[in-house]
Amino acid sequence: MIKKLKLSDKNVDFLKKIEELSGEVITRCDQCGICSASCPMVSEMDITPSQLMRMVQLGESEVMESKAMWLCASCFTCTVRCPRGLDLSKVAEALRQVELRQAIDHIDVKKLSKDEMKRLPQIALISGMRKFTG
């Protein structure tokens, strides 16, 4: 028997917003889990990439409280392996942007130690600030 899920308007809005920002048809995900199995950061995450996708599918904005999207390193391993052709890195970026676009920075580089600031190459600071500041 096919069970139909009915999402609330609020949930549909959240799903649509993430689909728009990411440009990905998130409902296509069939939860195979290849992304989670491929993710180099998965052991650090509170929810796996496939769980993150499921939450977005269901329009659960609670996903914003997860730290998984902040641990994504945009390595595109899931992207090249997804059998449904989805780009999860874009979904993670969309979720990050929802927060960053409200001018909420995820890191404060001023808190890095002097030693770190001396060592870090520009490429690390530029990419990190691109990804973690709004």
Partner: peptide, 16 residues
């Protein structure tokens, strides 16, 4: 030191 990181240390927003 005469190093680019001095600029980033005081003005990290340069990276943006």
């Amino acid at each position: 030191e005469y190093d680019v990181n001095v600029l980033f240390e005081y003005y990290p927003e340069l990276a943006r």
